[in-house]
Write a protein that binds this DNA or RNA. Structure first.
Lengths: 132, 132
DNA sequence: CAGGATCCTTTCTGATACTG
DNA sequence: CAGTATCAGAAAGGATCCTG
């Protein structure tokens, strides 16, 4: 009997999709994932649900517009849930979905890479800029 | 005697830098790394040196301008080397530096994630768009 | 082949002002 | 509090033309 595990389906997907190809829908998904705000919002939600204002506080410098816009896209893509609690004032919580949790390791990896290799990049830039 | 290993220095860097903070230089580095073309160029260079035209062929749809621009930035940041062979016509090869090789796992992870979860994202979008 | 320089269009992003 | 709507400047991206 033909049973398909999640792992097998992913193997299949890996063969069917290729972001190197133009036209491939993964190209569009890739461009959504490679977003500064996504790389900050996903890690910010790692420890559990957070309110809009909490996220705005955690992610310094993000505008209200970009935060909302990013959260909406993440919600549509199934990475985040949005829960509204009817009260006065309204309370809205965002939380990672299982799919969002799967993305988390990837996002935190980029953030960590930037933080741990900043000095090396600085050195490289200095060298590059100093050459004739 | 005080010796510092690379691992220790990275631990230190992790404490000193925080991309959640505005003003932190890692925020700028993060925005450079979260770039669609970077996520394609780094994996395209994983197997060894590649010429400009080879990369353009591999990464379908990239314009000459964006490819050159991306490679320049990667070179400046110490992730890629650019080697010119004086011949007619000129031959230019790009290759990952050790630092670039360290970034590779992170970049391929994003690309793979997009390819293996495309279907789930499609489903999530369909559900989101179908709701009242 | 590689890539600099330009022009032009699209997208992004950050204020600002206004609701339930 | 958590948005929506709008506007204008900035940046990204693509197409084209030209050079060593």
């Amino acid at each position: 009997m033909a049973t398909t595990t999640a792992a097998q389906r992913r193997e299949q997907a890996k063969r069917d999709y290729d972001a190197f190809l133009d036209r491939c829908p993964t190209r569009e998904l890739l461009s959504r994932l490679t977003d500064k705000w996504v790389a900050l919002v996903i890690p910010a939600l790692a420890d559990g649900p957070r309110r809009h204002s909490e996220l705005a506080g955690r992610i310094a410098g993000v505008s209200q517009k970009m935060l909302t816009q990013t959260l909406r896209t993440l919600e549509r893509d199934g990475l985040v849930t949005r829960t509204v609690t009817a009260s006065v004032p309204v309370r809205v919580d965002y939380e990672l979905t299982p799919l969002g949790h799967e993305l988390f390791p990837v996002m935190i990896a980029i953030k960590n890479w930037a933080e741990t290799h900043m000095d090396q990049v600085f050195q490289a830039r200095a060298q590059f800029d100093a050459r004739p």
